[in-house]
Each structure stands twice: as structure tokens, then as C-alpha cells.
């Protein structure tokens, strides 16, 4: 590991080359640059997740920790290759004035030509696409479920500011559920009359699932609350009976469908490295997420408008969370 104090982008770039050469292998087989914008507290966990994902996607990983923005600017960095990483890493700590110009440090460090993904493991900016660091990437990964402020609205905010290339890990968490639901309708090509999603009270994934089902099925979808963990049940009502996937304890689910015996099916809650690896597999626009985000954002907007016009307290309390 090379430790750099009070350095610049050029200093970090030189250290990356030096680390690579001293690791004995001057070749670059990296396929993308991953920028992680993170707090000091979350940095280690985020870098560990990126390390695991780097085995599938060898990358230059730039951890960016923005400190206190007051005072004169200073940039410190730790640069390393190897040590369980496939690719190379730089952990960059900024404080003072330079925090407002973080992109000036990151831009020179992006791999030539290779795609750039930006990931906010906890609190993302409200509009990632216009964020100076976010604007550097063609893939911007947020995680509404990890938000520490405005938790109930984090997903809505992300959906409202959706731009090409944005994606949220709350959506990634749904892939297994969505695959299973799609497979259920492959097996039972029945008309769905209505549907329901049951999940923890605050669950960005459940909100997205409701929006996706509404968008695809064009039927009313009810959102119910449970103790969790995560999503606990999805029901599709058809003329021949219910298709139901129930996962009361987060792991093994039970799959029920008309005229078929109940069957257990593994539906594990996936860890962050796995979700991140899935995100990095495709770097073009996710059109289905775009449509889902538009629907969720639209629903939020209508609700806010209703609230404003009626001003009733009760709507405010239940609206947006449990419906």
C-alpha cells in the first residue's frame, strides 16, 4: 500500500502506476472504473463489497470520502493493487474546499475509454445525474434502503429524479422475486385480476414491486404491512385461484399456484456484493426500471397533489407508506 499525504490527482495516478509495477505485473486488464462515494464510517464495508464484486468485474476502484468542507482543501490517498483485489484501488480522503470540487480529483483518475460506475452505499444525492461526481458515470447506483435521512421518501426522490443510467439496489433486490413471478405466469398463462404485496412498513423494494406490477399488469395492487424481513408475500389473484409466494422469514419461500401442490423455493436475501456484481453486469439503460420509476414517481406526485388540495391529516399519515 502506498500512503500519500496532501497529494493531487497526478500524485495518485503516478502511485497507481508505481503500485502496479511493483506488484510485478504492469498489465491492465480492468474493465471499468468504480467510484464509491461514501462516509468514513461506511467506507470499509463498501470497499469490501467492491472487492468481492471486483472478482467478476476487474476494476479500478476509487473510494471517495468527503470530509468537513470548511477550511483549506487537502487530499490524502492510499493506493494499492493485489491483496485480494482483482484490479486496483485508491482510497481518497478530501476535506476543506476541495470537497466541493471532488470531480476535479476523480476525473483524471478514470481509466481511459472504460465505462464508469458511481455508487453511493448510503445517502445518495437527490439527483445523482446532476451531482458533479455522478455526472462522471454512465451508471449511477444508489440504495434507497440504506438512506439515513428521509427514509420513507428516499425511493420516491430517486424515482422522481430518474435519469438514464440511474439504478437503485432496491430494484436489484427484486430480481429474484420478479423472475419467480414471471416464471409463475409462464406456467399459468392466466389473467391477473388484482395483486398484493406485503412487506415491512418501510421497504423501497416493495414500493418498486407494487409499481412494477401495476405498470405491467394494469390492475390494482394493494400494499400491506408486515413485520418483515423485507418483502414477505406477493399474491396474484386469477380466475382459477391465487398464485402466492410467501416468504415469512427471509430465506425459504413457499410457492402456491392453482391446481399444483405447494412447493418450497429458495428466495434468499442477497448480500451487497452480489447485488453490486449484478448491477455492474449491464451498464446500459434499464428501461424496465425507468418505466417502474416513472410510475412510482407519478404516484408520489399525485398523492402529494391530493394532500395539498385536501389537506387532510389522515391521508398524510397513511399515504405513501403503506398503500
Amino acid at each position: 500500500m502506498i500512503e500519500l499525504l496532501d497529494t493531487t490527482a497526478a500524485g495518485i495516478a503516478a502511485a497507481l502506476v508505481k503500485a502496479r509495477t511493483s506488484a510485478g505485473s504492469p498489465v491492465m486488464g480492468m474493465v471499468l472504473t468504480l467510484v464509491i462515494v461514501v462516509d468514513e464510517d461506511e467506507a470499509e464495508a463498501a470497499m469490501d463489497a467492491a472487492k468481492a464484486a471486483s472478482h467478476e468485474h476487474p476494476a479500478r476502484v476509487l473510494g471517495v470520502i468527503l470530509g468537513d468542507g470548511r477550511g483549506t482543501g487537502r487530499v490524502d490517498a492510499q493506493v494499492a493493487t493485489g491483496q485480494g483485489w482483482s484490479g486496483e484501488t485508491a482510497m481518497i480522503r478530501m476535506r476543506g474546499e476541495v470537497c466541493r470540487h471532488a470531480e476535479s480529483v476523480v476525473l483524471p483518475l478514470l481509466l481511459p475509454d472504460a465505462p464508469v460506475a458511481v455508487w453511493w452505499p448510503c445517502d445518495p444525492p437527490d439527483d445523482p445525474a446532476t451531482d458533479p461526481l455522478g455526472a462522471l458515470g454512465q451508471r449511477r447506483i444508489t440504495d434507497a434502503a440504506a438512506a439515513t435521512r428521509a427514509r420513507t421518501k428516499a425511493m420516491e426522490i430517486q424515482c422522481a429524479s430518474y435519469a438514464r443510467g440511474n439504478t437503485d439496489l432496491a430494484w436489484t433486490r427484486l430480481t429474484r422475486w420478479r423472475a419467480l413471478l414471471a416464471a409463475a405466469l409462464d406456467q399459468h398463462p392466466l389473467k391477473v385480476r388484482r395483486a398484493s404485496v406485503e412487506a415491512e412498513r418501510i421497504s423501497p423494494s416493495a414500493d418498486l414491486l407494487v409499481a412494477w406490477l401495476q405498470d405491467r399488469l394494469k390492475v390494482p395492487v394493494e400494499r400491506r404491512s408486515s413485520e418483515g424481513p423485507g418483502i414477505t408475500e406477493v399474491v396474484l389473484e386469477t380466475g382459477e385461484g391465487d398464485i402466492r409466494i410467501a416468504r415469512p422469514s427471509g430465506g425459504l419461500a413457499t410457492f402456491t399456484s392453482p391446481g399444483q401442490p405447494d412447493r418450497p423455493v429458495a428466495l434468499p436475501r442477497r448480500a451487497i456484493p452480489e447485488l453490486l456484481a449484478e448491477e455492474l453486469r449491464r451498464l446500459d439503460e434499464d428501461e424496465v426500471y425507468a418505466a417502474t420509476a416513472r410510475r412510482l414517481a407519478g404516484r408520489g406526485a399525485t398523492k402529494r397533489a391530493q394532500r395539498r388540495s385536501t389537506g387532510r391529516r389522515t391521508t398524510r399519515r397513511t399515504g405513501g407508506k403503506t398503500s
Partner: peptide
């Protein structure tokens, strides 16, 4: 001539193909 599955979308490339029963 069943209607196409509304939950499938050719643009939805995250969804893996799961083998039928």
C-alpha cells in the same frame, strides 16, 4: 394462442430464464 406474459419484457434482461416445471 395464449397472450404473452405481461411480466416479461424483452428489454428486461435482468430476468433470467427459469426452466419450466
Amino acid at each position: 394462442d395464449a397472450a404473452p406474459n405481461p411480466l416479461r419484457d424483452p428489454r428486461d434482461r435482468r430476468l433470467p430464464r427459469i426452466a419450466g416445471p
